[in-house]
């Protein structure tokens, strides 16, 4: 279990991480989402004891990382953004080194074999790390985090540089590991976070912008007051008729999707479902509706909106804004 309380990191005047608090329970997979420079890696570095925090606490299984770093680090398997690989060693020699470094008490041969097989690097175990491809290097990095079977795994962009097949493999692996490990995963690939993580934290400019499950986040922002419609008819007249709907915030002709047929994007007041109004208007004017749907926000939309500073209306369902 990981507890972060009011973690802050200042670099002079710059607040890289500003009062971040969250908890990760045992067996949970948490996704860290945020643009570059948001403070994701800084937070992870503070959690693993690589850098010190300016204020605040980070507790790994109840142990404060700054009070008792050795005990805390024993519980952590960390894969940094750039895997700490010694290029002049072979895979097996390197992992043995990590085994000794972590003072692992597990039976060496069987544990090594397990980790090598799990990360699918058994066939390159005698190769120099310098000679491995990026994908293999990444997997060796993941393997070193798994040595010692630490209860907490902190993975900074674990699938970067992997081909799609390998990405799926690693994601499946992480999901499996998540069953009996506590995992924090940071990524830019939103679909990955959505697929693997139970909860998502969106960090922007050093603060937590959102903290909830992926589905909840989508739910909170999915609205039926945003509608996309493709209507066959004269553009100006359509716009005029739609603008007449009471409570409408805006409508705009988005794109000419089919010859002579525009797609209209419109938004009404929160909670107001205008689809029936659209139907009525179309019937009255004898226009054909070729497409009518509510605009759902994917995690990507939420992410972009939040990080671009737009106000995202989250229904107050007991979550944080």
């Amino acid at each position: 279990m990981i507890e972060v309380r009011h973690l802050t990191k200042h670099y002079g005047d710059k607040k890289a991480v500003n009062d971040i608090s969250f908890t990760v329970n045992d067996g949970e997979i948490l996704g860290f989402l945020g643009p570059n420079g948001a403070g994701k890696s800084t937070t992870m570095n503070m959690l693993t004891g690589y850098i010190s925090s300016t204020s605040g606490q980070a507790l790994i299984n109840g142990v404060d990382i700054l009070e008792d770093p050795i005990a805390a680090k024993r519980n952590i398997g960390y894969l940094p953004e750039i895997p700490p690989l010694y290029l002049d060693m072979t895979v097996k020699a390197y992992l043995n080194f990590v085994f000794d470094l972590k003072k692992c008490k597990l039976p060496r041969r069987s544990h090594m074999k397990d980790v090598l097989t799990l990360c699918k690097i058994k066939d390159v175990e005698d190769r120099l790390i310098r000679n491995l491809s990026k994908g293999y290097k990444q997997r060796v990095g993941l393997a070193q985090a798994l040595i010692g079977n630490p209860p907490v795994l902190i993975l900074d962009e674990p699938t970067v540089g992997l081909d799609p097949k390998q990405m799926v493999e690693i994601r499946t692996l992480i999901k499996r590991l998540g069953k009996n490990h506590t995992v924090i995963l940071s990524s830019h690939i939103l679909s990955e976070i959505q697929a693997v993580c139970d909860r998502v934290i969106i960090i922007n400019k050093g603060v937590v912008a959102a903290d909830d499950t992926a589905t909840n986040l989508s739910d909170k922002v999915t609205t039926d007051h945003r509608v996309i419609a493709r209507i066959e008819g004269e553009k100006a007249a359509i716009l005029q008729a739609i603008r007449a709907i009471p409570g409408l915030k805006y409508v705009r002709a988005d794109m000419e999707r089919e010859p002579g047929i525009w797609e209209y994007e419109m938004e009404a007041q929160p909670g107001q479902d205008i689809r029936r109004e659209i139907n009525r208007i179309a019937r009255e004017n004898e226009w054909n509706i070729l497409l009518l749907k509510t605009m759902e926000m994917t995690l990507e939309d939420i992410f972009l909106k939040i990080t671009m500073g737009e106000h995202v209306e989250l229904k107050p369902k007991g979550g944080e804004q």
Binding site: G49, Y50, A71, K73, I82, P83, P84, L101, K103
Partner: peptide
């Protein structure tokens, strides 16, 4: 980074 985040 690997050394400093290890329990040593």
């Amino acid at each position: 980074q690997g050394l400093l985040t290890a329990p040593v």
